[in-house]
Nucleic acid binder design. Structure first.
Length: 269
DNA sequence: CCATGAACCTGGTCGC
DNA sequence: TGCGACCAGGTTCATG
């Protein structure tokens, strides 16, 4: 599920379902799901003031604290009204009136954090790619000042937040930059092109409610449609839409990586 | 400072 | 059909 557009989609879906309601308790079904607090720490009745997103966290805002939910690889968050819950439920938030907010997570990597506010998350994360904090001057300056593998750098949440394996591959392909390029050797004009493509691709994906593989449904049976728009991710063996060259898959920065060697140039010196 | 690999988990897929 | 190997949209930690 979880890169910026998918997390945004989940937050946008959950918000009207729970905002204004009260959380009365949390059941940590998986014993490690509450990362830095205990269910006793939120005993009582807490009004949900807002549901937003920061980086890849879903932020639930209360009067005096926030809960930050990270879906990691397989986390899902949705509202249920009946009494049963699925096999891989990691946590259940009980709401007043009988609704439940279900955190389902097959691989159990997902975590819930309690903070007083966004400070700690902000300290460990780079700018939001769709905000004005992320601009071409900042991007050029910080790409040029680092000697990093470009794919690893774009995946680094402390540099820029929200991108993951799909949108990094898509953005680099759209910009004609090979994932094994070194950040400081990419020409300024290419960095500006990459900037524009990151913003365009994320925005378009949010409009399509994100990318959904397999059959995860979170909007009453709907799911994200951006998978239809993918140009390079998962397209190994297919021919490149721009140049008809065969798309290959390799490993970069420890991750499966999709590339067209003909139209993505390696900037290494 | 940077890269790499393992760890955290479960389930799906592919080859034999 | 069965089984092992390998893979998966993320992050953190140890090591070189």
């Amino acid at each position: 599920m979880p890169e910026l557009p998918e997390v945004q989609t989940v937050a946008d879906y959950v918000k009207p379902e729970i905002m204004g309601n009260y959380i009365t308790s949390v059941d940590p079904i998986w014993n490690k799901v509450l990362d830095n607090f205990d269910s006793k720490d939120i005993e009582g009745r807490h009004k949900i003031l807002n549901v937003t997103r920061r980086a890849k966290f879903i932020i639930i805002q209360f009067e005096n604290f926030i809960l930050a939910i990270h879906l990691r690889m397989t986390g899902k968050l949705y509202v249920l009204e009946n009494d049963s819950y699925p096999k891989h439920t990691s946590a259940i938030f009980h709401l007043e009136g009988g609704k439940k907010l279900i955190f389902e997570d097959t691989r159990k990597f997902g975590r819930i954090y309690r903070y007083s506010d966004l400070t700690e998350i902000n300290e460990r994360h780079g700018p939001e790619p769709l905000s004005s904090d992320f601009n071409t001057d900042w991007f050029v300056k910080n790409m040029k000042s680092k000697k990093r593998n470009i794919k690893a750098l774009l995946l680094d949440q402390s540099f820029l937040s929200g991108l993951g394996n799909i949108y990094v591959d898509e953005s680099l392909w759209a910009s004609g930059i090979h994932p094994n390029s070194i950040s400081c050797h990419i020409p300024k004009q290419k960095i500006i092109l990459l900037y524009k493509n990151i913003r365009r691709i994320l925005q378009e994906s949010i409009e399509q409610l994100g990318t959904t593989f397999i059959s995860f449904t979170f909007l009453n049976g709907q799911s994200g449609n951006y998978s239809n728009e993918l140009k390079i991710f998962g397209k190994q063996g297919c021919s490149c839409e721009k140049c008809k060259n065969k798309i290959i898959k390799l490993k970069v920065s420890g991750r499966g990586t999709h590339v067209c060697k003909k139209c993505q140039k390696v900037y290494k010196s």
